[in-house]
């Protein structure tokens, strides 16, 4: 059985380590904040200029001067700090953020990532995605294993415009987890009830299978 959105977020949350500074993208990545493991303290960065992003505010504490990069109202924490967009991307580009978890449209076997533009449709822009994948130490990508029409999204080469080249470190889909080891994808985990044969059918990218392939019964 494929993982749900929440279960994907739960799996991604296992990548969080105590003391990490983390940037979460819009969509499923935002849900990761709900599954931070016990005994792990992470600081969330919002690229519009905040470290120590708190939860959504109580209705009477909403502040139009306090939003996240998804333009949602948020709250601050005792350890929060604010800074300019230039400082924000200096810490991103400069490798000071440990982990970014982002959504994707396509990933390629060399780690290329496409998540900002579909030619022919209105382009909204890349926002901070290109800076994040270029600068953050570890980039975890979350996406459905296949498109709505069943076609694979983990490909030999992306056919959508790239967000970054050779930038993916870990790919978590609703069916499996691939780790990029020395730039090569390795299938390391399967969602409950999914077998390696099903992954092979639904994947265009070439990858190897980890000898210690982990079959999940459920997310711990």
């Amino acid at each position: 059985m494929a993982w749900s959105r929440e279960e994907i977020a739960q799996r991604a949350a296992q990548e969080l380590q105590d003391g990490f500074y983390v940037n979460l993208g819009i969509g499923i990545p935002t849900l990761v904040a709900n599954y931070i493991p016990e005994n792990v303290q992470v600081t969330l960065e919002s690229e519009n200029g905040m470290l120590g992003m708190g939860p959504f505010p109580y209705p009477d504490q909403v502040d139009p001067d306090l939003i996240n990069a998804g333009k949602q109202t948020i709250s601050e924490l005792p350890q929060s700090s604010y800074f300019s967009s230039a400082d924000s991307f200096a810490m991103i580009r400069g490798g000071h953020i440990d982990l970014a978890i982002l959504g994707a449209m396509q990933v390629a076997q060399n780690g290329d990532l496409a998540n900002w533009m579909i030619p022919g449709k209105m382009i909204k822009g890349m926002g901070g995605a290109m800076d994040l994948v270029a600068g953050v130490n570890k980039v975890v990508i979350i996406m459905d294993h296949t498109a709505k029409d069943g076609s694979p999204k983990f490909l030999k080469a992306c056919n959508l415009p790239l967000t970054g080249s050779d930038v993916t470190d870990l790919l978590i889909t609703n069916l499996a987890v691939f780790e990029f080891q020395d730039g090569q994808p390795v299938l390391i985990e399967l969602a409950p009830g999914v077998d390696a044969e099903e992954i092979k059918e639904k994947t265009e990218a070439e990858y190897t299978v980890c000898p210690k392939l982990k079959r999940h019964l459920h997310i711990q």
Binding site: E47, S84, S85, A86, S88, F89, A90, I92, R93, I123, G125, M126, G127, G128, A129, M130, D131, G135
Partner: peptide, 13 residues
């Protein structure tokens, strides 16, 4: 003209 957000900020800086 699209600029990545961090590139835009740094270009201004």
């Amino acid at each position: 003209e699209f600029n990545p957000q961090g590139t835009l900020a740094e270009r201004c800086r």
